[in-house]
Design a protein around this nucleic acid. Sequence first.
DNA 1: CGTTTCAACGAGATCGGTCGCATCAATGGA
DNA 2: TCCATTGATGCGACCGATCTCGTTGAAACG
Lengths: 360, 360
Amino acid sequence: MGESSTPHNKTVKLADVARAAGVSQGTVSNVFNRPGLVSEQLRERVEEAAKSLGYRGPDPRGRLLRAGRVNAIGVVTVGPLNCFFDDQYTRLFLSGVAKACEARGAGISLVSAVDDEIAAWNIRTALVDGFILNCLNEGNMLVELAEKRGLPFVAVDFPVGPGFDVVRIDDYRGAREAAQHLLDLGHRHFAVFTFETEKEVRVGFVDDVRAERASFEVVRRRLTGYRDAFRAAGLPPQPVFETGSEFDGVCAGVDAVLAANPDTTAFVCASDRVALHVIAYLRSLGRKVPEDFSVIGFDGIEEAASSIPPLTTIYQPAIGKGEAAVELILGDKSDDVGGRVVELPIELIRGASTSSPRAK
Amino acid sequence: MGESSTPHNKTVKLADVARAAGVSQGTVSNVFNRPGLVSEQLRERVEEAAKSLGYRGPDPRGRLLRAGRVNAIGVVTVGPLNCFFDDQYTRLFLSGVAKACEARGAGISLVSAVDDEIAAWNIRTALVDGFILNCLNEGNMLVELAEKRGLPFVAVDFPVGPGFDVVRIDDYRGAREAAQHLLDLGHRHFAVFTFETEKEVRVGFVDDVRAERASFEVVRRRLTGYRDAFRAAGLPPQPVFETGSEFDGVCAGVDAVLAANPDTTAFVCASDRVALHVIAYLRSLGRKVPEDFSVIGFDGIEEAASSIPPLTTIYQPAIGKGEAAVELILGDKSDDVGGRVVELPIELIRGASTSSPRAK
DNA sequence: CGTTTCAACGAGATCGGTCGCATCAATGGA
DNA sequence: TCCATTGATGCGACCGATCTCGTTGAAACG
């Protein structure tokens, strides 16, 4: 009872093992990290000492401080952490990020930015080598915070800015192609279903002023694309409705649009998710797609291809965006001036959710 | 040209700011972390010095070494990183993990374990406060590695072991209920579609020996559940086919089973994903569900509820499992003896993919 | 006016490793 | 035999911040 046999009160560290084995710290470090540099005899002695002391190997914290590199990148998103997993498109994007990180042997840290304060703290203190900034609105604080942190970062779907890299698609063209596809089929009365124009979803019609002032540049670019397509076809402005991504908002949108304009024959949706909601709701109302209404999505997620009917949509390479973002951060650092822009191609996928409008 | 005005070659650190402001390091630290403890006058002086030196605030690496806590937990999965995002069930599980982490202000690190060596390195060196071990097979190295690391960890869907916590469901009962549901409907000829029985998928029939030796305990428990249900109903052993989770394997399974036993009327599937594949393939063969065949899934993912027909399935609380795992790691550490077991309830969801077999 | 008290701040000791360089012995060739 | 080379180790200096004490000064108190 006099003395404890195991020194459990203190964590054993490299120096303890070194002392016990009668060697220097550097040698112990080598035993664990570069065993080839150490003679077998000495190595065994050190390993024995380590085992008898219960040493578990070099603590990554000490290594980190010395090495400087974390070997992980942080993915930031506005909103709660689980929004990384709640959305199909985000999921695909992250899948690309994951694939590219894996290939480079890097890890991924999910950092949340539910509110401004948490975002600030997390971006200041996250243990990462760089950031991927997702779901941004223009002038977003995230970019400022990342700049302040001084680590490399990539902004996804963001207006090009000075000194940092951007990955994006041509949202304007995507929107315009979607509208054009329906125009080509003969549609003349549309409903445009858009993402939130402000930080908070506000289900309802969106007037021109609100459309032009939309916080998210993606939203502005797309709305402009639709507008230009309609205008070029000689059509008056078509109604724009902010539905958000949830089923309820979409239902409200369908109801409102059909009440305001019973001639509507085509729904132009901000995402496949919204489009699938539209189809489900129309079906529940006893209306058929594409016989009664044409519906076009955006994204090209898996569910869109296997839905009934298969969705016509604007495919964007979500996985490719994720991979590109990682490459920008982890890749060649020779010109770290930033300001590189990667714009990935989109493509119209002709499914069976669009057709010529029925003659009335 | 004699001297550079900005000392850009070295990173400025706390000590530099302290020297420039003529205060101690501790005071600078307080200015950034506990501003209230510092007189306004001094704070301004320090902040000015920091700004003029381009100091970006305390480096998290130093803080980490000193503080000890990373404030993040690592989620480990066998296989590539992107398998976190490629599977609906995993996605739900992680959504639960994310939610719980968010609530506690912790971050999430995704750590990959593609092969043994990478797993060993990552678990040894991941900057986390604890691990959630996912997708395990019995005797899996992951548990040993986590034990060696000496950090708290939770094993999900794993045989109970000494000294560590486990989150699971009653797979035996789930399987038995699934089979019983179909037995109650009058089915007598089944096909059981199972996950991989070894580390690598091997599409094909599974004999008793292989079934009993299955690497994954989940698989063994479920197969035992099915077997006991059939046995209790006075039925001979029913064919078990290893399909994996991909469409091709499932098609092969359907073909093989129908060729071997044309009387088959019911498919008992390892997951909703497999069940949906079965339904899709049967439909492509011109067979109807549930008129020609009954199909039951496992998991209760969203797609199962919205499929056509809605899937009958054994629901398991994937999100709840994730939350429970986080609670075990981050929660009350008073009894850190480990060995706690959280078993979450399952539930039979009656969809429309099962019915009484058609009289022949 | 002496003493207590408390806030504000400084000094120094960690936290746990890793890296560069010096050292020392052994080996090999001239 | 002697010097150059090579390989294995030891030594000490960081990496960057935070925590624990102890000190100081001034206000407060009797």
